[in-house]
Design a binder for these strands. Structure first.
Lengths: 226, 226
DNA sequence: AAACCGTGTCACGCATTCGTAACGGCCTTG
DNA sequence: CAAGGCCGTTACGAATGCGTGACACGGTTT
């Protein structure tokens, strides 16, 4: 999942944020001061930065500006943590373009919500297909609808996700582990054979359209290319 | 590129918005009060208006209404700037049809994103409907009125918003989190199960028309397509 | 003050869905 | 041809998701 850089000089604050973001399924990198933050931002190129305004030596504002100036990091969304509401205007408004802010003390849930929100917004720009059509099989992601020969097929949430993940990677074989990652998220506690069962249910429901789902013995599963 | 009219009485705010929109490649015209805004809207016929709600003399709501009434300007998309989340309902819902809103303080990048978004939608010709009719169910958004089989149904503000959000995205499944975002607005940290409760109340009040509201297990809710 | 309304949360129970184990067939390999 | 892995299939207990009723809280009305 996405990697997030958390910058704060108070270890307690870092830990709090880290714990909650990890619970939400994000990977977390931390830094305790401005220079370390800049170094790690370049090294890890995180998907987002959560940045405390008050930092020793190089403060948050500086870090923000520098990140924005460097083309390698200028695209990374930044959420500012600030103690004073009065500073908000400067943070958001002025030359440094933070994308959102949270005033301390903040609720962990709120933080996670804002992070998710920003993540989604960022994705909006990259194009991802939300509709697939192969012969008699149609997959409509936003409508959560699958039809075979015009007839609606009722899939459960996991079946649907499994199908779309395979469809999005059409032609490429996906190992069971890969599928567990992408369909079941990071729940690695699951038996790989579970995938088989779901594939079976999926094929059963798809009927004749099941022929688009290949089994690659010893490797995994694949959605046929055309 | 497209021309955008920015209306705000605080010079700092205007400058901020202007700078960011220009950076994004738009041409910008500014106005500091309502009458100036109306004058410039007619003179330049901009492709979009970014309009502060709080203005001296003629306020943003008035400007919005007048722009909508005049055929020469009624087609121009309007983005409202507002300080209070509570005002959002009035802005979007009621007699004046603003196309989007941003609460202050806002991130410049968010503003630009929304502007781009609206620009695209204008081209896409997807118009936001303010009246829905599906069999015996009629939803009149500007009038805040819902009828089933000609009989009026009293909905609370949240119920109504929930219904209209679903209706506007007819056919597409909306996750609980999505609905919390769009119905309950940003600031709230609400349990996702709350959505269920409101759905239940909504269905109860809608009676037989409740069949238009699908539950998609493991995913969210959906207003049926036809 | 009392009553009411709109709202958010909780707990319970049911139905569906999920994950796993077990078995048996098929393909591969030697 | 036999053995061993790999996969499809079946069945079943566990877990989950959702609808529902009840309740608490704050704001407004009576």
């Amino acid at each position: 999942m996405a990697k997030i850089l958390v910058v704060d000089d108070e270890p307690d604050a870092v830990e709090l944020v880290e714990f909650n973001l990890k619970s939400a399924g994000y990977e977390v990198v931390t830094a305790a001061d401005g220079t370390e933050a800049l170094k790690k931002a370049r090294a890890h190129s995180p998907a987002m930065v959560v940045l405390d305004l008050m930092l020793p030596e190089v403060d948050g504002l500086e870090v923000c500006k520098i990140l924005r100036r460097d083309p390698a990091t200028s695209g990374i969304p930044i959420i500012m943590l600030t103690a004073k509401a009065a500073e908000i205007d400067r943070v958001l408004g002025l030359e440094l373009g933070a994308d959102d802010y949270i005033t301390k003390p903040f609720s962990p849930r709120e933080l996670v919500l804002r992070v998710k929100n920003l993540m989604k917004r960022g994705k909006g720009e990259e194009e991802k297909k939300d509709r697939f059509q192969l012969g008699e099989l149609v997959i409509d992601v936003p409508r959560h609808l699958v039809t075979v020969q015009g007839k609606r097929v009722d899939l459960t949430a996991t079946e649907f996700k499994l199908l779309t993940v395979l469809a999005q990677r059409r032609g490429r074989v996906q190992s069971r582990e890969q599928l567990l990652q992408d369909v079941w998220q990071y729940d690695n506690l699951i038996d790989t054979r579970t995938v088989d069962t779901h594939m079976r249910r999926l094929r059963e429901k798809l009927g004749r359209a099941a022929r688009y789902l290949d089994t690659v013995r010893g490797v995994g599963y694949r959605f046929v290319e055309n």
